[in-house]
Design a protein around this nucleic acid. Structure first.
Lengths: 129, 129
DNA sequence: TTTGTTGCAAAGGGTTTGCAGGAGA
DNA sequence: TCTCCTGCAAACCCTTTGCAACAAA
């Protein structure tokens, strides 16, 4: 894949964000070197294919994109108060899936786990008031 | 919520299906008493709110809807060969989340697990050829 | 020079909305 | 009767596409 300023810009914006971004938010943050929306769509598609990013559909039914630090199997944990999202590289689900394989008769090959909660900071803020 | 033939039709189609359906597929299967697409959209939204159905975005980026047998916490397991989807009522994830809470500092309040694999029948079919 | 990439404008298409008529309760 | 619901058509808006110009290698 060729190195272009547009691609570098999109990846930079994703990397610098601590939360998933919509296409328009990405576009907004590419202050200099702002590219057209079609370019952002086209590249995000590539990035997802390559495992550099992931798309998540929020409860508001809006599609957002996150940069993936790890290309390997991982999950995302998002704070429901501040919106921050962190990557979880340890997957503790594997064991319980073996039981489920016996129970269901399926051979399980793949899974996605989406986690939501309150981050440390928002827990403290909650206690204070 | 009022009982209307349209609502009964949509719920019937969802209940009779062993896999998630697109809005158009639901519309197709409402042979008699076929309602307008806006009606289907409006009611699916209600059904999801009420916990009678769930929407899932496939890898093909198409939105589909599944009937939920259980209104309580559950997951879905789909066969990647035949497309059939079953509901999983036992959730073995809870334990491993406690470890993750310590690790991450988050208090985890909610999670979604999407499972994919091969059902018993498709495993057999795989072996035969 | 070759080939992949971008920008623009336009098309596409799934989803939503407004409003009048209809039907549950 | 009083709401809520449906149907229709049109509007919406996010996303994709076609094509010519451009730039990476």
């Amino acid at each position: 894949m060729r190195k272009t300023p547009q691609r570098e810009g999109i990846l930079r914006v994703l990397t610098e964000s601590d939360r998933p971004l919509t296409v328009e938010e990405i576009w907004d943050r590419m202050a200099e070197n702002r590219s057209g929306l079609p370019t952002i769509y086209r590249n995000l598609e590539r990035f997802v294919q390559e495992g550099w990013a992931e798309n998540v559909l929020g409860q508001d039914q809006v599609m957002r994109f996150v940069h993936c630090t790890s290309k390997h199997h991982h999950h995302h944990l998002q704070c429901e108060a501040c919106g921050r999202m962190v990557e979880v590289d340890s997957c503790g689900v594997q064991d319980s899936l073996q039981q489920l394989e016996v129970l269901s008769g399926f051979r399980i090959t793949r899974h996605h786990l989406s986690l939501f909660g309150l981050c440390r900071e928002c827990q403290s803020a909650e206690k204070r008031h």
